[in-house]
Amino acid sequence: MPKIALAQIDTVLGDKQKNLSHIKDYCRKAASNQANIICFPELVTTGYSLDILGTELWTFSELRGGETDQLLSSLSTKFDLTIICGFIERGGSLGEIYNSSGVWVPGGKSWKGTFRKIHLVDSERNWFSSGTNIPVFDTPMCKIGIMICHDAGFPEIARILTLSGADILFLPAAWCIHYKDVWNINCASRALENGIHLVAVNRCGKEEKINFFGDSQLISPRGKPLTSTLGDDEGLVFGYVDFNLQAKTRLELPYLRGRRKDLYNIDHSLIV
């Protein structure tokens, strides 16, 4: 059973070096507790107040081989730890940037791959380009899929990842306290309807006018929390993913097998 470390941390807006040092410390703590996988929140290397960072977002963005990539590649190998971490990914020559989460696995020289947030919300639309791919990543323990924050409100992403072979879903987020009720409903629903473990890792702390509430948790395939939460405090939460439980749940609640694909041919031109 993979042991998962949920790194519920705060960040310092615009101070990448301090944030990377914080990430390094938490990777060390996770490894000392024999974790196999650690997940950090959304945009954890930079902070989330996009309109304040403004055009500095481009400066903070990174290509493969950048400082975040080099550091986490090294830490992943050193600690034999798969790392999932939010950062700003630089695109092509047109200046596009993405709200991304990378995956680093032991022995890799750079990230295994990235998931670029698909469903942008509020000021994200002013700065980021939307992702267009829904990849599943091979790790030493299992196959994983990633959604980022607002993506959790769209059942299609979790379902596509599950049908594509993901064994665990990860949800890095910077979710504000005004929508805490939605956080809990979305996390439970995406896990239950796919019969899959969901690792939901939310930021804590305050950034300008935004309050993040943490409440990171590992959700069972029945939609129930398997870990106690830290509330809105910093810290690590550990939990195990039991694939036997996952298989048993899918037999008891056969949402995947019971799908009526013959009825799902939707003419999207009719949807406003």
Rank of each mutant, 00 (worst) to 15 (best):
V199N: 09
S76C: 03
K143S: 09
L253R: 05
F238I: 02
L198A: 10
Q8S: 02
N99A: 11
G54I: 09
S220L: 03
Y179P: 00
S164E: 08
R28Q: 14
Y98H: 13
D80N: 15
I88N: 03
F213M: 02
P41N: 10
D51M: 09
S61L: 06
L71W: 07
Y264A: 15
R90P: 04
E89S: 12
R90M: 13
L81R: 12
I160G: 01
F60C: 00
I52H: 12
L161G: 07
S32E: 15
D69I: 08
G214A: 04
L63W: 12
E124G: 06
W111G: 03
V201S: 10
V136C: 11
V182A: 12
D151N: 08
R159C: 09
Y48N: 11
G258L: 01
T46P: 04
W104L: 11
H197E: 05
R125G: 06
K18E: 13
D167W: 07
H22C: 14
K248I: 12
L270S: 11
W104T: 03
K206W: 02
L20A: 05
G223T: 05
P41G: 09
K143V: 03
I266E: 09
G91C: 02
F212R: 03
R257W: 06
L120M: 02
V237D: 08
C204V: 15
K209M: 11
T11D: 00
M1Q: 08
Y255E: 08
T249N: 02
L163C: 08
